[in-house]
Write a protein that binds this DNA or RNA. Structure first.
Length: 344
DNA sequence: CCCGATGATTTTAT
DNA sequence: ATAAAATCATCGGG
């Protein structure tokens, strides 16, 4: 972890001390016009530079030595000045910390699915979702089918929470460590609380991207589980013969406008022992499939009409003028098409 | 086991 | 919000 912390500090440049500036004593003298022997400053700087490469115990001793060095206050002020000059470029980095729509989306989904949120309440919420998704089973034993689903969902939730806690803990640990490190270092170089805060923000963002991956994969797992157990297509049963009879009767007697009102749908649902949404599904399917069939059959009729017309024409080729209208379409056979009329 | 029928869901357009 | 269209997944007969 120490190694990581050091690397992170180095990468992010939170030190605020570009190496070129620090490593060059002449540069410092330019900034700070003091006639000290550059040997001293160079020595101190050298120690600072190597200190991060040492083990913690070793570094502890060195740090102590540095802190007691007679040049320390002067160096500190030099560092302050250098930092002041470089501060502008650091300020240039925009914080830009939005609520992140991606993670919000995932959070909402997990919450809705009952993976996140309270322990038991989550299960009931999920059950509610299940019931809603099923569109209200007619009389099917609902909870029986969902026991396995709920079990697996709980399993996912446990895993999710365990991982989340692990990440949280690691994040806190790491943050603490970095903050301690920065506080420690603030004795020898200028680090404002605001910068520490910024560092914490950076760390949290890093960890939150990891968290997002966790949430992403959890969402994926839940969706797979959902489709595996909850998709009503997987346990569909055909309606009874008489139900089909009732529905077809209504459809064909309202062929001009086969859009039953809400009331009519309720009536049909009652007669067929199915739900209103099932009635709506049925009519949706029926309309499109009837239309498709009509279109298909009509096209077929047209094809054959064309063919017979062509045949007839070629047979009676000696005839001076073809008297046929040459428009063999208009297969008015299933003329009862509901589409042309306005529906609304 | 193949294939069309069929109920349900998802996507698209208005 | 609603319906059409596309698609999915199962059923049921050959």
């Amino acid at each position: 972890m120490d190694e990581q912390a050091r690397m992170m500090l180095g990468h992010i440049g939170l030190t605020g001390l570009p190496h070129e500036d620090v490593g060059d004593p002449d540069n410092i003298r330019k900034h700070h016009n003091m006639g000290q022997p550059q040997q001293d400053i160079g020595d101190i700087l050298q120690q600072i530079m190597v200190i991060t490469d040492e083990s913690l115990d070793e570094a502890q001793a060195r740090k102590h030595a540095l802190n007691c060095h007679r040049m320390k206050p002067a160096l500190f002020s030099v560092l302050c000045e250098i930092k002041e000059r470089t501060a502008l470029s650091i300020r240039g980095i925009q914080e830009e910390d939005g609520p992140d729509p991606q993670i919000m989306r995932l959070d909402n989904m997990l919450l809705a699915e009952g993976v996140a949120g309270p322990e038991r309440a989550g299960a009931s919420a999920a059950a509610a979702v299940v019931a809603a998704a099923a569109g209200g089973s007619p009389s099917e034993g609902g909870s029986v089918d969902h026991s396995e689903y709920k079990e697996k969902l709980a399993q996912i939730r446990r895993m999710y929470h365990a991982e989340l806690e692990k990440y949280q803990q690691a994040c806190n640990e790491f943050t603490d460590h970095v903050m301690n490190l920065l506080r420690e270092q603030s004795r020898t170089r200028p680090i404002s609380p605001k910068e520490i805060e910024r560092m914490v923000g950076i760390i949290h963002r890093k960890f939150s991207t990891i968290q997002m991956q966790l949430k992403q994969s959890t969402c994926e797992a839940v969706m797979i589980l959902r489709s595996r157990f909850l998709d009503a297509r997987r346990k569909r049963r055909n309606f009874s013969k008489q139900a089909a009879e009732v529905l077809n009767t209504y459809f064909y007697s309202h062929l001009a406008n086969p859009y039953p009102s809400e009331e009519a749908k309720e009536d049909l649902a009652r007669k067929c022992s199915i739900t209103v949404s099932q009635v709506a599904n049925w009519f949706g399917n029926k309309r499109i499939r009837y239309k498709r069939n009509v279109a298909k059959l009509q096209e077929e009729a047209n094809r054959y009409a064309v063919k017979t017309a062509v045949d007839a024409a070629s047979v009676s080729s000696q005839a001076s003028q073809a008297n046929s209208p040459a428009t063999p379409n208009s297969g008015g056979y299933p003329a009862q098409c509901y589409t042309p009329d306005g529906r609304l």
